[in-house]
Amino acid sequence: MPFADHPVRRVTAAKGIRPSTHWPHTIPAVRQLLTDGLELQPGVTFLVGENGTGKSTLVEAIAVAFGLSPEGGSTGARLTTRATESPLADDLLLTRGVGAKRAGFFLRAETMHGFYTYLEQNPGARAEPVFHEMSHGESFLSLINDRFTRQGFYCLDEPESALSFSSSLAVVGVLGRLAESGSQVLCATHSPVIAALPGATILEVGDWGIRKTRWDDLQLVQNWKSYLQAPERYLRHVL
């Protein structure tokens, strides 16, 4: 795609970087990215996999390499409380689209409370919703509807952690509108609801590294279907 104009066309290892024997390079998905690179398609890309497979590590590193705050927010936010992010962002090189927008936003569940405080302490020209006065799920939806409006690059790390079924569907609608407007989205998720967005690229991460797949073929989807059909088959092993 020599004339692609979406924000991030490709993610590769920075010059001189080779996979090492230290974390997070030891994660198969990270190792594959550093060895082979990763093409990011226009529209929405989901990273799906079990805990510990590297999906959040990849989203965080790509967001930071793009210029977003590791604790969440837009390209202008500089919230810093305690640095817990991996050093992977320094090992990455992003190939940008020609004339692509520089705007972006990183939404991560575990740092949203601090981000709301940051917004209150650094008010902009327009009035902000009072996120701290909302429930966790309400604040998430309000933030997404309020901030996910400009064309750009949006990174989300497990947004479903705060959301009900109906709220997850609302997020699917927002992501669909972003894709239609020319924005690019990279989202790590455990939610079969969110990952079902039509037209999205789905990358499954695991011991094999990173592989493209279909929603119907996701282990996540198969597990949820089996559980909902007969929860007792699973519960007898834990109760």
Rank of each mutant, 00 (worst) to 15 (best):
K15N: 13
K15F: 11
K15E: 14
I17H: 13
R18M: 15
R18N: 13
W23K: 08
P24K: 07
P24Y: 05
A29K: 00
R31A: 13
R31S: 11
G37H: 10
G37T: 07
L38Y: 01
E39I: 06
L40Q: 01
Q41F: 10
Q41L: 08
Q41I: 10
Q41V: 13
P42D: 05
P42E: 04
G43V: 05
V44C: 07
L47S: 05
L47C: 03
E50D: 14
N51V: 09
N51L: 06
N51K: 08
G52R: 15
G54N: 06
K55D: 05
S56I: 01
L58R: 09
L58S: 03
V59H: 07
V59D: 02
E60N: 02
E60K: 05
A61T: 01
A63R: 01
A65R: 09
A65W: 10
G67M: 02
P70G: 00
E71I: 03
E71P: 04
E71Q: 14
E71D: 07
G73W: 10
A77G: 09
L79Q: 08
T81R: 15
A83C: 02
S86Q: 06
S86L: 10
S86F: 00
S86C: 03
L88Q: 09
A89V: 09
A89H: 11
D90E: 15
L92A: 02
L93D: 13
L94W: 00
L94Y: 04
L94T: 00
